[in-house]
């Protein structure tokens, strides 16, 4: 077992502290009883209780969840198909353009993605709202899904698929009975990523949303622009807690899954 030198240990402690301290401070302040954010007025759940009555905020959270659920699911399906096409179909016509369209959105500034989406919806005279945000988020997230699933498929031991075919499974059955169960953890992880990306997105949603489809980040942004407030501290703390627990649970699950092998597929 190696031992960390004092310098390396200090670096790690400082680095982790830098990453986590702001979030910890945010959470601590969300329990501040005082209306003035900077004055400590003792511990209180007051601002959380306040949130329960904030209908527009809850509405926005509900819309965000719905957008994230639908777009993450659509992006996972489309992205997995795209990854299979890229890894397993060899050279097909237009493959270069296909690959470019999958990688380009990953580095495209959100402002431009949002702008171009909006211009499309205007060009075809679609009323903007829930579904336009879903389409925009699906497009952005499907590229992330494709990249993650593609990485898993590239690592995939081809002889497993050959063995299945050798034993009489057609290519379609082979995919369902062998490939899919084995890449399932990667697909689940990319669904989670797509969900988190959608839940998190402000810029693209701002461009593509319409009346009645204000997402949580848009709502938070409009409040936060005016300055720090105790209600926002509470909202943000809840989001952090939910996402944090989900991610830790998911990573534990994948670890157990990896240790036991994926669940049996019969």
């Amino acid at each position: 077992m190696r031992k960390l030198s004092a310098f390396n240990l200090a670096t790690l402690v400082l680095g982790i502290a830098f990453l986590y301290l702001p979030i910890v401070i945010l959470i601590v302040y969300s329990f501040n009883a005082s209306r003035l954010v900077v004055v400590w007025g003792g511990w209180s759940m007051h601002w959380y209780a306040e949130l329960a009555g904030d209908a527009p905020l809850l509405g926005a959270a509900f819309i965000s969840l719905r957008v994230a659920l639908v777009s993450a699911t659509a992006a996972t399906v489309l992205g997995t198909l795209a990854a299979v096409a890229l890894v397993r179909f060899g050279r097909f016509r237009g493959r270069l353009l296909f690959a470019a369209m999958i990688y380009a959105p990953l580095v495209m500034p959100e402002v431009i993605t949002g702008l171009s989406m909006l211009l499309l919806f205007v060009a075809i005279s679609v009323d903007r709202g829930f579904w336009t945000v879903v389409i925009a988020h699906t497009t952005m997230a499907l590229c992330f899904v494709a990249v993650i699933v593609q990485a898993r498929l590239v690592d995939f031991d081809m002889s497993l698929e050959e063995a299945a075919m050798d034993l009489g499974a057609s290519p379609g059955r082979t995919f369902m009975a062998v490939t899919l169960p084995l890449i399932l953890p990667a697909i689940a992880a990319s669904w989670m990523l797509a969900f988190a990306l959608s839940l998190d997105d402000l810029v693209i949603a701002s461009f593509t949303t319409g009346p009645g489809a204000t997402t949580l980040p848009i709502r938070i942004y409009s409040e936060v622009r005016l300055g720090v407030s105790p209600e926002m501290n509470a909202v943000c703390s809840i989001v952090v807690a939910v996402v944090g627990i989900a991610v830790i649970a998911a990573s534990l699950l994948t670890k157990i899954g990896a240790a036991r092998g994926a669940p049996a597929g019969n």
């Binding site: 986590y20 945010l26 900077v38 839940l199 980040p217 943000c236 989001v239 996402v243 830790i248």
Partner: peptide
């Protein structure tokens, strides 16, 4: 450690910036 470095990436971007607004305020 890898999980610890990735974890903040999963929490909302907007919220992490907001957390710094808290810290960097005048008081």
């Amino acid at each position: 450690l890898v999980l610890l470095v990735i974890l903040p990436f999963w929490t909302s971007f907007l919220i992490r910036i907001y957390a710094w607004m808290n810290i960097l305020q005048h008081d």
